[in-house]
Design a protein around this nucleic acid. Sequence first.
DNA 1: ATGTGTTCCTGTCCGC
DNA 2: TGCGGACAGGAACACA
Length: 297
Amino acid sequence: MPELPEVETVRRGLEPALVGRIITRAEARRPDLRWPLPERFAERLEGRRIEALARRSKYLLAHLDDGMTWLTHLGMSGRFTVFARDGGATTPLSETPGAFALAAQTAGDAGGGRHDHVLIETDAALLVYTDPRRFGAMDLWPTAEIETHPLLKSIGPEPLGNAFHVDSLAEALDGRSASIKSALLDQRRVAGLGNIYVCEALWRTGIDPRRAAGGISRKRVAELVDAIRAVLADAIEAGGSSLRDYRQATGDLGYFQHRFAVYDREDQPCAREGCKGVVQRVVQSGRSTFFCGRCQR
DNA sequence: ATGTGTTCCTGTCCGC
DNA sequence: TGCGGACAGGAACACA
């Protein structure tokens, strides 16, 4: 589900509710998401103060006051929902059906909170992690060595940071026979891109997604760097893309989906000024790719 | 080392 | 309306 802009939107939504707050109670309602949760996960969160909420690629990183970082990946269907606590409520988290019913309702989950897997209570808010497909993940890792986490250590440069530029991308693509579409989805080349924003960036640059990654001219790689930055910035500004059930942590919908040029627009006219092409869908490495066969070369 | 196909899981939508 | 199949924002893993 969420790509970099959606995760950044979630981070910004959670930040005011979480940073500086103390986790008064935590509950894992099952022992695993995609993988087993760490030993004594909920107990190790309880009593901790959240010092900062950061993002690396599609991972949320909550830095705690004991030197550990609580790491979360939302997978395809994970989401956080925040509920303000009523003043002075002392009801145990597991006995607040009202809040859970509200969480389920907001999530559009007819199962009555069946997929609400992790619950976090702070002195100010109730945080519910919901993930029907359970492709998400959580872990605890020392903050000082967070970049050595197995899930983070091979991830490429942040596309909105200084380490991502024409030289780094050209080197990452050099000599590769895989398609540019597949290469950009590979998190080792550049962090945080997923199916939507790869398709959109390639459309903005006019590059055929089926072209070999290593055969793209330096000039076009430079244009691709700019297009990736621009499409991510535009999407963050719009609060991300709301497809199906994605919502911001505030419950608001993002609206970048209304600005898609090609993603999920098979058979619709190309949005480029003067182009008479039609959006096509092909499958590359098992994923749908949307592009205009006329203006993307 | 690369590239690709499979797999995890549940929900939704579309055609018959 | 029910049923089966395709498909979904991810990415680790197995295997050529």
